[in-house]
Amino acid sequence: MIGLNHYLLLSGVLFCLGVLGVILRRNVLIILMSVELMLNAANIAIAAFSRYPLFNAGTLTQEDYMTAGNGLVFVFLILTVSAAEVGVGLAVVINLYRQRSTVNIEEVNLLQG
Protein backbone atom coordinates (compact mmCIF):
# COMPACT_ATOMS: atom_id res chain seq x y z
CA MET A 1 0.00 0.00 0.00
CA ILE A 2 1.20 3.52 -0.79
CA GLY A 3 1.89 5.52 2.38
CA LEU A 4 3.47 8.74 3.52
CA ASN A 5 7.03 7.56 2.84
CA HIS A 6 6.31 6.95 -0.83
CA TYR A 7 5.07 10.50 -1.27
CA LEU A 8 8.09 11.88 0.58
CA LEU A 9 10.43 9.81 -1.58
CA LEU A 10 8.76 11.14 -4.72
CA SER A 11 9.00 14.70 -3.45
CA GLY A 12 12.66 14.26 -2.45
CA VAL A 13 13.54 12.87 -5.89
CA LEU A 14 11.73 15.71 -7.65
CA PHE A 15 13.49 18.28 -5.47
CA CYS A 16 16.91 16.80 -6.25
CA LEU A 17 16.10 16.72 -9.98
CA GLY A 18 15.15 20.40 -9.74
CA VAL A 19 18.41 21.30 -7.99
CA LEU A 20 20.44 19.32 -10.54
CA GLY A 21 18.56 21.01 -13.37
CA VAL A 22 19.36 24.47 -12.06
CA ILE A 23 23.03 23.60 -11.60
CA LEU A 24 23.62 21.68 -14.83
CA ARG A 25 21.45 23.29 -17.50
CA ARG A 26 22.50 26.52 -19.25
CA ASN A 27 19.21 27.55 -20.84
CA VAL A 28 17.40 30.13 -18.70
CA LEU A 29 13.98 28.67 -19.54
CA ILE A 30 15.02 25.15 -18.49
CA ILE A 31 16.41 26.59 -15.25
CA LEU A 32 13.05 28.28 -14.66
CA MET A 33 11.30 24.92 -15.17
CA SER A 34 13.69 23.24 -12.74
CA VAL A 35 12.92 25.86 -10.10
CA GLU A 36 9.22 25.13 -10.54
CA LEU A 37 10.01 21.46 -10.02
CA MET A 38 11.61 22.32 -6.67
CA LEU A 39 8.55 24.30 -5.57
CA ASN A 40 6.19 21.54 -6.63
CA ALA A 41 8.27 18.97 -4.76
CA ALA A 42 7.63 21.04 -1.65
CA ASN A 43 3.92 21.12 -2.49
CA ILE A 44 3.76 17.33 -2.71
CA ALA A 45 5.52 17.02 0.63
CA ILE A 46 3.17 19.46 2.35
CA ALA A 47 0.06 17.88 0.86
CA ALA A 48 1.26 14.43 1.97
CA PHE A 49 2.08 15.66 5.47
CA SER A 50 -1.29 17.33 5.84
CA ARG A 51 -3.11 14.05 4.99
CA TYR A 52 -0.74 12.08 7.20
CA PRO A 53 -3.32 11.11 9.89
CA LEU A 54 -5.49 9.45 7.21
CA PHE A 55 -2.71 6.98 6.47
CA ASN A 56 -2.87 5.77 10.05
CA ALA A 57 -6.58 4.95 9.62
CA GLY A 58 -7.32 5.57 13.29
CA THR A 59 -9.95 7.95 14.65
CA LEU A 60 -9.36 11.48 13.46
CA THR A 61 -9.23 14.29 16.00
CA GLN A 62 -10.10 17.95 15.60
CA GLU A 63 -6.35 18.66 15.49
CA ASP A 64 -5.86 16.35 12.51
CA TYR A 65 -8.44 18.31 10.55
CA MET A 66 -6.71 21.56 11.57
CA THR A 67 -3.40 20.23 10.24
CA ALA A 68 -5.03 19.13 7.00
CA GLY A 69 -6.63 22.54 6.42
CA ASN A 70 -3.47 24.37 7.38
CA GLY A 71 -1.35 22.34 4.96
CA LEU A 72 -3.75 22.62 2.05
CA VAL A 73 -3.95 26.42 2.44
CA PHE A 74 -0.13 26.48 2.45
CA VAL A 75 -0.03 24.42 -0.77
CA PHE A 76 -2.61 26.68 -2.38
CA LEU A 77 -0.61 29.83 -1.59
CA ILE A 78 2.67 28.30 -2.78
CA LEU A 79 0.96 27.42 -6.09
CA THR A 80 -0.30 30.98 -6.50
CA VAL A 81 3.02 32.54 -5.64
CA SER A 82 4.94 30.23 -7.95
CA ALA A 83 2.61 31.24 -10.78
CA ALA A 84 3.44 34.88 -10.04
CA GLU A 85 7.11 33.95 -10.00
CA VAL A 86 6.86 32.40 -13.47
CA GLY A 87 5.13 35.57 -14.69
CA VAL A 88 7.93 37.77 -13.44
CA GLY A 89 10.58 35.30 -14.59
CA LEU A 90 9.32 35.17 -18.16
CA ALA A 91 9.16 38.98 -18.28
CA VAL A 92 12.75 39.17 -17.09
CA VAL A 93 13.85 36.56 -19.65
CA ILE A 94 12.03 38.33 -22.51
CA ASN A 95 13.77 41.56 -21.52
CA LEU A 96 17.09 39.70 -21.68
CA TYR A 97 16.27 38.16 -25.06
CA ARG A 98 15.34 41.54 -26.55
CA GLN A 99 18.62 43.02 -25.40
CA ARG A 100 20.97 40.16 -26.26
CA SER A 101 19.09 37.69 -28.51
CA THR A 102 20.17 34.81 -26.30
CA VAL A 103 18.78 32.84 -23.38
CA ASN A 104 22.00 30.97 -22.65
CA ILE A 105 23.24 31.89 -19.20
CA GLU A 106 26.90 31.42 -20.20
CA GLU A 107 26.65 34.24 -22.73
CA VAL A 108 25.27 36.62 -20.11
CA ASN A 109 28.60 37.69 -18.67
CA LEU A 110 28.92 41.46 -18.87
CA LEU A 111 29.18 41.88 -15.11
CA GLN A 112 32.39 40.40 -13.77
CA GLY A 113 35.14 41.46 -11.45
Binding site: G89, N95, L96, V108, L110, L111
Partner: peptide, 10 residues
Protein backbone atom coordinates in the same frame (compact mmCIF):
# COMPACT_ATOMS: atom_id res chain seq x y z
CA UNK B 1 20.47 46.18 -15.69
CA UNK B 2 18.82 43.41 -17.72
CA UNK B 3 21.62 41.02 -16.87
CA UNK B 4 21.40 41.91 -13.17
CA UNK B 5 17.68 41.14 -13.10
CA UNK B 6 18.17 37.74 -14.77
CA UNK B 7 20.94 36.76 -12.37
CA UNK B 8 19.01 38.03 -9.36
CA UNK B 9 15.85 36.24 -10.48
CA UNK B 10 17.51 32.88 -11.16
Amino acid sequence: SGEASVKYFL
